[in-house]
Amino acid sequence: MTSTADESASEQTTAVRLEKRVLVKEVWLVLALSLGASAVSALISFTGVLTSHRPLGDQTAVIVGSRAPGRPWLDLAWQIFAVVTALVPVALVAHLLARGGESLRTLGFDRRDRRRDLARGAAVAAGVGAAGLAFYLTAVAVGVSLTVDPAQLPGAWWRVPVLIAVAAQNAILEEVIVLGYLTRRLEQLGWSFRSRTAASAVLRGSYHLYQGFGGFVANLVMGGLFCYLYRRWGRVMPLVVAHTLIDVVALVGATYLIGKVGWLPGG
């Protein structure tokens, strides 16, 4: 009996080790196909910025640019393609969660509590958006951030709908993967809340490095706040709403304000 019990315990230990190993590989693969790759790309871009011998404030980071200048219908097709394919990693995460008996609903990405999610998201967006704008203007003024041009799209009828779609895509991709999925998997791997928060926040800041030091720091802080709120509410949906609203205001608002108001850099 003792021998059988020891063998059973040994098999369980081996299974746990294998499960953790699989989860680690899974996390790396998901990040390599999504925002981990974006972080590496942003780092390379930022290296180019630093070695260009030009002040950061004199350089521009474009978030949404034209993909077929002078050909609006082809441009629209490319924009739609980019939005749809960017969300494939979210579908992959949903599949991986389902294999373990979970779902995106486990992360709080659903419509169960729409009114509260919208209210919380709007409140977070107002606070974070105002603070973020103030920080960005300060960062550009002191020369630690590039001038961000949110959108360089033609003045076609689809410009605003595409910008809204991009805002929603960014929010869903980032909050589902970096906030919900990543912290969930790290918790299953035994990471503490502080460690999970640090990993998520640093990753979020890293793939915004193309905007300069200011973009990194601002998103690092935002990442920490979002992790705290996610832990408190147990749902990513309010943060998806908040992120979407922040990006809609940034993308659409800046499109019509840059060059027309003196306090907003660019133009």
Rank of each mutant, 00 (worst) to 15 (best):
residue 156 A to I: 03
residue 198 A to F: 03
residue 241 V to E: 04
residue 125 A to P: 01
residue 137 L to Q: 03
residue 228 Y to K: 05
residue 142 V to I: 15
residue 241 V to L: 11
residue 175 E to H: 07
residue 254 A to M: 09
residue 121 G to K: 02
residue 8 S to K: 12
residue 106 T to F: 04
residue 50 L to Q: 12
residue 168 A to H: 01
residue 102 E to I: 03
residue 237 M to D: 02
residue 36 G to A: 04
residue 138 T to V: 15
residue 96 L to M: 02
residue 73 W to F: 12
residue 86 A to M: 13
residue 38 S to H: 06
residue 191 W to G: 05
residue 225 L to D: 04
residue 120 R to M: 15
residue 220 L to K: 02
residue 120 R to H: 07
residue 57 G to C: 01
residue 164 I to T: 11
residue 139 A to I: 15
residue 144 V to I: 15
residue 246 I to Q: 06
residue 218 A to N: 05
residue 222 M to V: 13
residue 219 N to H: 09
residue 257 L to D: 02
residue 244 T to V: 10
residue 200 S to Y: 00
residue 70 G to D: 07
residue 147 T to L: 09
residue 239 L to G: 09
residue 206 S to D: 04
residue 170 N to Q: 09
residue 52 S to M: 11
residue 244 T to L: 15
residue 199 A to P: 03
residue 161 P to C: 11
residue 253 G to Q: 00
residue 177 I to F: 04
residue 262 G to S: 12
residue 34 S to N: 05
residue 266 G to K: 02
residue 84 V to T: 15
residue 226 F to C: 10
residue 61 A to G: 01
residue 248 V to F: 08
residue 261 V to G: 10
residue 14 T to D: 06
residue 164 I to K: 00
residue 265 P to K: 07
residue 212 G to C: 10
residue 169 Q to M: 12
residue 35 L to R: 05
residue 179 L to E: 02
residue 109 F to H: 03
residue 74 L to I: 09
residue 144 V to P: 09
residue 248 V to P: 00
residue 31 L to C: 08
residue 56 L to T: 09
residue 75 D to R: 11
residue 29 L to T: 15
residue 127 G to D: 04
residue 14 T to H: 08
residue 29 L to H: 03
residue 9 A to M: 09
residue 27 V to H: 01
residue 163 L to Q: 03
residue 68 A to C: 14
residue 164 I to Y: 03
residue 194 R to V: 15
residue 83 V to R: 05
residue 37 A to C: 10
residue 162 V to N: 06
residue 258 I to A: 13
residue 181 Y to P: 01
residue 183 T to V: 04
residue 218 A to V: 13
residue 212 G to Q: 08
residue 106 T to K: 01
residue 85 T to A: 14
residue 68 A to N: 11
residue 50 L to S: 14
